[in-house]
Each structure stands twice: as structure tokens, then as C-alpha cells.
């Protein structure tokens, strides 16, 4: 009973907030709705018994990805008049995308109801006495180890690529060398001099 109630609550909020991501005028509001959608998707994962995936969804998407989104979006200078402009110009392209998506949806639902692929029977069997994390770990690090490492390499390449593309060496910047600062002793850092009158001293 309570599961059913929770499911409909989470599912409704996911769909409603996903719709609000598109309908919200203000991009920052859009990101906030997106976060709400992520959250409730995590709730749905919990209901499906995948608590590990649910937590990862919150940690990765809400905790990191959405923060970076928000970071970028907050910097935008939003001009609402400009946002509304160009509606007619983008209408044909938008309509085309909408038609393609709708057609895909119709085909997907049609194919699913035709029963070609039995999706329900493909759900992974749940091993009773093992936690979610153990099950995923045992699969990921044995059977899918190659795919796992390949994904890691792809991410590494992407990371290095991003750094190489944006890195620039600037000249004339004084940077702090903390170990050099720590290595300085009072003897070499200070000097006691007693210059005579009119002599001054050299630094």
C-alpha cells in the first residue's frame, strides 16, 4: 500500500518537474526543477530495491553535475525579451524534432505492446543474502571488467583533452611556492645591519 502511494508520488513529481524544466522561463529555475526530477528518480530507484544506484544518482547528478550546471547557468545574463524572440524562426525545426520524438514514442510503445521482446522477464534476479553493492561489484569487476576499464579510459582521455584544450601558460604571474616558504629559516630571511650616517644600505 505505502509502496504504491510512494511510487505514484515519486513518478508524478518526476514527470511534473521534468515538464517544468522545459516550461520554466528562468534557466536557474529549470535547473532546480531538474534537481527535483533527479531526486524523485532516486526515490523510484529505492522503490525498485536498487539503493546503491539511488545514492549514486544523488551523489553524482545532484551533488556534482547539477551544481556545475547551476554554476554556468547562474552566470548567464538572462534577457527575457530576447528569449521570446525568434520563436517563429525556430518553430519549424522544433516541430520537426517533436514529430520525430512522437513517432519514436509511438513505435516504442507499439513494439513493446506487440510483445516482441519480453522486458519483464529480463529483470535481474535478486540474490537474497547479498547487498546491492556486492552484487554490482561482483558483476562489474569480473564479467564486465573490460567494459568498465574501457569506460575509465574514455573518461581519462576526455579529461586530459579538456585540460589540454583550455590550459594556457601565462607569463609574468607570481605563484606561491609553499615548500620554499616553509623551508625558509629566520637566519636567511632577516639581516641585522647597522649602517653609518649617510651610508644607507643595499637590499
Amino acid at each position: 500500500m505505502i509502496q504504491l502511494f510512494a511510487f505514484y508520488l515519486f513518478a508524478t513529481i518526476v514527470i511534473a518537474s521534468a515538464a517544468m524544466v522545459i516550461f520554466a522561463r528562468n534557466p536557474v529555475h529549470s535547473v532546480m526543477w531538474l534537481i527535483l526530477a533527479f531526486f524523485n528518480a532516486a526515490g523510484l530507484m529505492l522503490l525498485a530495491g536498487a539503493e546503491f544506484i539511488a545514492m549514486l544518482l544523488v551523489i553524482v547528478y545532484v551533488g556534482a553535475v547539477a551544481v556545475l550546471f547551476l554554476f554556468v547557468v547562474m552566470m548567464l545574463d538572462i534577457d527575457f525579451a530576447e528569449l521570446r524572440a525568434g520563436f517563429v524562426r525556430y518553430l519549424p525545426l522544433g516541430a520537426l524534432v517533436a514529430i520525430i520524438l512522437a513517432a519514436e514514442l509511438v513505435f516504442a510503445v507499439g513494439a513493446w505492446s506487440a510483445g516482441g521482446v519480453d522486458l519483464a522477464a529480463r529483470a535481474a534476479p535478486v540474490v537474497a543474502d547479498k547487498s546491492n553493492i556486492q552484487q554490482i561489484g561482483e558483476l562489474l569487476y569480473t564479467r564486465y571488467i573490460f567494459l568498465f576499464e574501457a569506460a575509465g579510459i574514455v573518461l581519462l582521455v576526455a579529461m586530459i583533452g579538456a585540460i589540454v584544450l583550455t590550459h594556457r601558460k601565462r607569463g609574468g604571474v607570481r605563484t606561491q611556492n609553499i615548500s620554499a616558504q616553509n623551508r625558509r629559516r629566520p637566519e636567511e630571511a632577516t639581516r641585522l645591519v647597522d649602517p653609518g650616517v649617510g651610508q644607507g644600505m643595499e637590499l
Binding site: 545532484v62 547562474m74 547487498s131
Partner: peptide, 25 residues
């Protein structure tokens, strides 16, 4: 008493930043 207690704490503590970001913006 959940299995993923520590991950839950990581997930929740990563949300704390939203209060600060949103109030600032």
C-alpha cells in the same frame, strides 16, 4: 539502519551546497 549509510551521508552532504548557491544567486 540502511546498507548504504555512508553513501547516504555523502549524498546528503553534497546537497548542502544548494542552500548557499541559491541564496547567493
Amino acid at each position: 539502519d540502511i546498507n548504504v549509510g555512508l553513501l547516504y551521508i555523502l549524498a546528503i552532504s553534497s546537497l548542502g551546497v544548494y542552500g548557499v548557491i541559491l541564496s547567493g544567486w
